[in-house]
Design a binder for these strands. Structure first.
Lengths: 234, 234
DNA sequence: TGTGTACTTATTGTATACATTACGAGATGA
DNA sequence: TCATCTCGTAATGTATACAATAAGTACACA
């Protein structure tokens, strides 16, 4: 069964937004997209409506679709909300997970691990996204799932920095994150509620630390600033 | 500016679903609805897509739209999740509320109070819904808002019992709820985080108590059962 | 009588033409 | 030179015709 162009469009747009291949706030042109995915505007618009419902894009009347923006206010809310939802979801996941979901999770984690080994930032980001989405599915809570998915969109987009190691410290952190994934799988398998909650918060702290470092980077040492100024003066 | 039929359709469907005028799980026929609201199927489908994103309806491929169901599993999750989200939202609302939002809230509460006086169950349910939605807007947290809105849909639908007083105890509870609303407004105005959290949980307890009583009603006294059996035997 | 199968019908999904709205370029005036 | 208005163009929003899919029904056959 050939995947219908509509489904392809939906998946691809999600992927491209998560990978920041289309930057936050950018306009999405209906004609252009319908041509690209070879579907007419009617189903394309349904895709955009759906992406809007999921928080990937925002629609405004007579103005079309924009990729959801990530301004400072949004990010502040993100950092405030994520630990609450993540830990709640993790607890419920340990209580409600099924065997099949656990197998899914292991499979995705192996893909994530492979991506780390192969230094493929997009594959890392997307598999990490899916990893945490599966934990959401395990929790089996439609109410929290909607919040979680929205958080994960922004988390994955912010995390792009994380998975594109500019410094050696990043690769160390990525391996540490991968190990935390393994530990989380074990805790979920054993239904250890206390352990999964603690691991989830540690995992969050690691991630937050990296992301905040990006938002507010370490100040350059004075001599470097000096160097840059001299260079610009030439 | 005449409200476009599409907006009317959206609002009316939401209202009717919340008021249980269309029961959970019932099918929504596209042709019928497009005729009723005098819009063509294209914009109607966009309305359904949107309602699906908000959790009012569920869509399945080639099977159309159904009003979101309320099975036992859903309700179990609801009771588990609501206090977490409600209290978190309330706290943030106290921190972030604006004057304009507070005025909105007072206005809606006066409408709610009037509905209580006028014994208008639909107006009570809808104004109560809006009351808590405004508190969500005050919190200014897009992530939690999506969860909150979904919770409120089911809360309002379950609450239909609450606002259609069969026993005298219900009217007493409704007046108590209304007084709690007033207290919550005061706490939000004063930005008393501790107070609003406490009030929110009390408000929840009151509501939950009534709803659970509906789900699992008090058992009939034995002599009544006896009477019913005799009657059926005739 | 039960079961499987082809056909009919009703409903959803898609394409396309048309209507409407927003945005910007250019003209006109102060 | 600047502001404002008008109009053209390009986008989004809507209606409708058509295609594809699913459910129901009648019929044949065991």
């Amino acid at each position: 069964m050939k995947p219908t162009g509509k489904q392809l469009c939906l998946d691809d747009l999600r992927r491209r937004i998560l990978a920041m291949q289309v930057p936050p706030g950018s306009d999405l042109d209906e004609s252009e997209l319908s041509a690209r995915y070879e579907i007419s505007r009617t189903p394309l618009r349904e895709v955009l409506q759906r992406l809007s419902g999921e928080g990937y894009v925002t629609l405004s009347a007579n103005r079309g679709a924009k990729v959801a923006s990530m301004d400072l206010a949004t990010m502040r809310t993100f950092f405030q909300t994520a630990p609450l939802i993540y830990s709640s979801v993790a607890r419920m996941a340990a209580e409600n997970r099924t065997k099949a979901q656990l197998d899914d999770l292991k499979f995705v984690q192996s893909a994530f691990s492979a991506a780390v080994g192969g230094r493929d930032p997009d594959a890392m980001a997307l598999n990490n996204h899916r990893f945490h989405e599966i934990i959401g599915e395990m929790a089996d809570n439609a109410y929290l799932m909607s919040s979680l998915k929205r958080l994960l969109i922004d988390h994955t987009r912010l995390g792009q920095v994380f998975y594109r190691p500019s410094a050696a410290a990043e690769t160390v952190a990525i391996r540490q994150a991968s190990q935390q994934h393994d530990a989380m799988i074990a805790a979920l398998e054993a239904r250890e509620v206390g352990v999964i909650t603690e691991l989830t918060l540690q995992h969050w702290d690691l991630s937050r630390d990296r992301m905040e470092r990006f938002v507010r980077p370490d100040p350059l040492p004075l001599d470097v600033i000096d160097f840059v100024e001299k260079k610009n003066a030439v």
